[in-house]
Nucleic acid binder design. Structure first.
Lengths: 332, 332
DNA sequence: TTTGAGTCTGTGAACGTTCACAGAGACGGC
DNA sequence: GCCGTCTCTGTGAACGTTCACAGACTCAAA
């Protein structure tokens, strides 16, 4: 019951290992008769190449590792991951490469990742939601193995190529929209200020309103619904006469909506609410959220493309920034 | 700049390959002096074992593959996946094993998966949301490599071990709850009838109401919000006097809620709505959904445990069915 | 002192590939 | 008829491990 090897195929086809190997690897110097015999032999024996043996000599693994840098608790919610995983799996499959998942939640995890990559077990690395100042990033860069990120790695923008949505311009779009609607006192709830989305979306907001004007109108959240609720509560207390709020994620916006409802403010009559992401919650809130759509699928695609190019030894341009679009619903 | 090999470590430590290998693999016959020398040599050289070379001789890969059987479009939404991935990655990491992701969306994908597993590239397989009658399942079983599923594989319940939430009892809980609230005409919107959740949750519903009574009160959806909307519309047309509906997923329930709102029915006064999953949407709908919580994390854990046991050559009990809990909010 | 068991070590072979090399044959141009 | 080029093929070595085996040494019991 042993798995057939390249020897078995060669014997069955009446040729040598070398010829079989050449056919397998797309070398052009294989005669048609040999080709046919080998192809039949492969079909008959059910042969499939042993990647370990191959990797051992080629020094290539045919796999890429995706590193998720969230702590273990905060796992749900983010559709980014699914899209990223699917896209990567699909695009890698086209090259017959595979995707290995790793989590870098604590220091032990990070060491494992470093060891894994340093051990030469991957041809490339995807970094997801990596935090500012993560020493793992530098260690990975040191290995010399291609690495890319989805969204900027703060402080390493120039060393880790990345693709991302145009968070800043998206925030500008939303803020301008609120202004155009005649809103006079527009506040914002940001994401965490150690994430690119948190930073960029606030930048976009102040781009439109001006730094001084915006100063008093900022509260910070941590992307969770709960943090949206409490940030909204703090805003209402500090700025009771606000008539609009730009919330840096839909989930936080959902939280803001319930706080507003509890406070008796009507949306959008009294307060307009703008979200960000156009995630699935955006359509289910009441009222449905006006939000900014991110081209998630395209960002994922470009991220993968970036890594594949690096693996191929090219020098792709980075960053790849993709446009966002305003989705007008009822909340603003 | 070559990566150090076991030879380098052996030389640096003044011992032979064999001794280093023994230490690495936890063999007890290694003297303390050798151990210390080797450990220092490993630290100095930055040695990390080459898994390919190891796999080549041990015939074990130290990795497990997770197969997602959704077509490429329907990817978002399902938190199951994230939890499952995280749990698997975490538990595998403890054994220094890694997780490879594959998607089986079309026939080409399925062939790739079969080839991959048949090629001996994985020590085990996780099957996620596998469809009834999928020939890939039989092919995988034929390889003799351990495989488990999260949720039953319809028609292969006895050949593929699995862990799952007690969908049937969960549906009973919800249906009973609606009855206890004094609801007289309770309808249901099911999931697709080729998924275990679709089947089991309907079973639970009819368990409580009786097959004949339930007959007329059933509409089918496909888990999406949109399908929930239209199924609800069909129900309203066919059974205008219904006063409750058990919807087999929260997302579909969100759809049902908006149809009810459009139709001018108040929830829960006119119509009570019960969901299933206790997913993130459940809290954001208006009114918040009364639903059934699945022990997602525990299901994932048990699924992984099952596979690890199989890999270790044990014969674990299957299926592992885990209890659900009713979460009362405002919609019922 | 001999024996035997237990501990520890080194060595050669094997795992299944790819790759470089050498060589055989075919064919066309001179 | 010879040479050079092109196509095609087989072979040996290498990749970095593990494993079985044989042997050396220690120690205690007979």
């Amino acid at each position: 019951m042993k798995r057939p090897t390249i020897h078995d195929v060669a014997a069955a086809a009446g040729v040598s290992r070398g010829t079989v190997s050449r056919l397998l690897n797309g070398d052009r110097y294989v005669s048609t008769t040999a080709r046919i015999a080998i192809e039949r032999a492969i079909a008959e024996t059910g042969y499939v190449v042993n990647r370990n043996a191959r990797s051992l000599v080629t020094q290539r693994t045919g796999s890429v590792v995706m590193v998720l840098s969230e702590p273990h608790e905060k796992l749900f919610e983010d559709p980014n991951y699914s899209v990223m995983i699917r896209t990567a799996v699909r695009m890698l499959a086209e090259r017959d490469m595979s995707l290995v998942m790793m989590v870098a939640g604590d220091d032990g995890d990070r060491d494992r990742v470093i060891r894994y990559v340093r051990g030469g077990h991957a041809d490339g690395v995807f970094l997801l939601s990596t935090h500012a100042g993560d020493r793992m990033v530098d260690a990975l860069v040191d290995t010399g193995i291609p690495a890319v990120a989805q969204g900027a790695v703060i402080g390493r923008e120039n060393v880790i190529p990345y693709a991302a949505a145009d968070d800043r311009e998206g925030a500008r779009q939303m803020t301008r929209y609120l202004v155009e609607q005649g809103r006079k006192k527009i506040a914002t709830i940001t994401g965490p200020m150690d994430t690119p989305g948190g930073i960029q979306r606030l930048e976009g907001f102040t781009d439109v309103l001006g730094r001084k004007a915006a100063k008093k109108l900022i509260e910070h959240g941590d992307w969770t619904q709960l943090s949206g609720e409490s940030a909204m509560a703090r805003l209402l207390q500090r700025v009771p006469d606000l008539d609009a709020v730009f919330v840096a994620s839909d989930l936080m916006a959902a939280g803001a909506l319930s706080t507003l409802r509890m406070a008796g403010r009507r949306v959008p009559q009294d307060v307009a609410v703008g979200g960000f992401d156009d995630s699935s919650v955006a359509a289910t809130t009441h009222p449905p959220l006006t939000t900014v759509r991110q081209p998630l699928a395209r960002v994922a695609e470009e991220t993968v493309r970036l890594l594949l190019a690096l693996i191929d030894g090219e020098r792709p341009e980075s960053p790849v920034i993709l446009p966002t679009a305003l989705v007008a619903r009822e909340s603003a």
